[in-house]
């Protein structure tokens, strides 16, 4: 292959093969491959699955409502832990700490906000106040990927690694700068499945840099269009 490329590079130049990719071109391919436009039209999404870390496996339900409401329920020893964002405020209830809801702040709040964004931070990134830069192609773990850097409005930085073959992200690195130290988390996506025209990763592996800790998230089922009342996202009154 290499030999051919060198011999005919002149021909290819004129075919504008070597035209640099722009970030929006690559994102367009990704949105197409993942069906993000269709996802944007879904009013709600309910995901059921579990989160595991080593031997601990916790059932989990995630409910998202357009445009920016999110609620996650996790069952721990029969008790339900709830984390939610109602469009303005983030809150959580960990019953073994207290029955009263606690407000989310800092990194946790940013994470909840991000979860509420169904289509992801790259979709309409400019409107969200982020800046996206195409960093070029890289070889990542033996596959070719587009590397896109997202400078988020809140100061955090993300790197998206989009497989050039299938135009889906296989890895996202998030550098959170909310605390006194930079915290780097690598997330790996796989087990992509197409449901209702939307291609979603059913398996995610999150690794926190420097700790060796790995967290797995497996989604078992996804339902679109279920009726989710606003009240379930609101912080409960004491």
């Amino acid at each position: 292959m290499k030999k051919i490329f060198v011999l005919f590079s002149v021909v290819f130049l004129s075919v504008s093969f070597l035209q640099a990719q722009t970030v929006d071109e690559i994102l367009a391919k990704y949105f197409k491959a993942s069906g993000t436009e269709r996802l944007a039209k879904k009013k709600t999404i309910v995901m059921k699955g579990n989160m595991s870390q080593m031997d601990m496996k916790l059932p989990m339900v995630i409910k998202v409502k357009h445009p920016n409401k999110f609620r996650m329920e996790m069952e721990i020893q029969g008790q339900e832990m709830v984390t939610a964002f109602d469009g303005e405020h983030g809150w959580m209830i960990a019953p073994w700490i207290s029955q009263d809801p606690q407000d989310l702040a800092g990194e946790q709040l940013e994470q909840a906000k991000e979860q509420a964004d169904m289509e992801g931070e790259l979709y309409h990134y400019k409107d969200k106040g982020h800046k996206a830069t195409y960093m070029g192609k890289e070889e990542m773990e033996g596959s070719e990927v587009y590397k896109i850097k997202l400078d988020k409005k809140n100061g955090d930085v993300q790197y998206y690694y989009i497989d050039t073959d299938v135009n889906l992200p296989v890895k996202v690195t998030t550098i959170s700068k909310q605390g006194g130290n930079e915290v780097k988390v690598d997330s790996y996506m796989s087990n992509y499945k197409t449901i209702d025209g939307v291609t979603i990763p059913m398996s995610m592996e999150n690794k926190v840099e420097g700790t060796g800790q790995t967290q797995q998230i497996e989604i078992e089922s996804i339902l679109f269009g279920q009726d989710l009342p606003d009240s379930i996202f609101l912080k409960p009154v004491k």
């Binding site: 080593m54 031997d55 601990m56 020893q77 029969g78 008790q79 073994w96 029955q99």
Partner: peptide, 20 residues
Amino acid sequence: GIRLKPPRVPTSKTLSFAGF
């Protein structure tokens, strides 16, 4: 992980170490 599933425990407002 080289542990079997933890035992189920009765649910209450507090968490039990054994359940993990």
